[in-house]
């Protein structure tokens, strides 16, 4: 079961590349690339956060082993999302990009989320975990604000808030399940 995480996480990328190769994307393919990598990243981030509460619910220990690959696949999509935005869409035009960051709170939230996820991805190895020792765990709690910023990023850019609100509600539930109140039985 845990090894299925790899092919499953790569499905969105495979679909995207396949459709691009077959010319099945819309006439605005850059938009498709940005939206779809962003959504895959967010979904995987929520799945990462779902492992711990689900493990507590079911007692299945293998769920905990999914956190690392799910988190890293999320980071892969988020990175592709950022590259699509900054390089493919904005052609690394720093003036336009900084204007977008300054003008748009959703761009700022997205950038902030990425910069919180970056150290987590970089310290995901066993070696880094050993080196960081007792700091590793608090550092990786950055996933909470990162996920919140990512969900806000989506909420603030969407014309219709319904889907982002569903994501936010799920995230809120996943975070609430971590509160001590739920653990007292």
């Amino acid at each position: 079961m845990p090894s299925a995480v790899h092919p499953l996480s790569l499905i969105p990328l495979g679909l995207l590349l396949g459709e691009a190769a077959l010319g099945l994307l819309s006439v605005n393919p850059i938009q498709d690339l940005i939206l779809r990598t962003g959504k895959a990243g967010l979904v995987l981030l929520l799945l990462t956060l779902a492992c711990t509460p689900l493990k507590r619910l079911t007692g299945w220990k293998w769920l905990l082993a999914l956190r690392k690959p799910l988190g890293l696949y999320s980071f892969l999509y988020v990175s592709l999302h950022l590259v699509a935005f900054a390089v493919i869409d904005f052609g690394l035009d720093l003036a336009l990009i900084s204007q977008a960051i300054a003008e748009k709170r959703y761009v700022l939230a997205g950038m902030a989320s990425f910069s919180l996820l970056l150290p987590l991805a970089l310290t995901s190895t066993k070696a880094a975990q050993r080196r960081l020792g007792r700091w590793w765990r608090p550092l990786h709690r950055l996933i909470y604000p990162a996920a919140l910023l990512a969900a806000l990023h989506y909420l603030w850019l969407a014309k219709v808030p319904r889907e982002p609100l569903i994501f936010l509600a799920i995230l809120g539930g996943l975070l609430a399940l971590r509160l001590p109140w739920w653990r007292i039985r």
């Binding site: 336009l96 204007q99 977008a100 003008e103 748009k104 709170r105 959703y106 603030w156 850019l157 969407a158 014309k159």
Partner: peptide, 8 residues
Amino acid sequence: THPRWSQA
């Protein structure tokens, strides 16, 4: 600017 999309 629009709250969602930069119009530049």
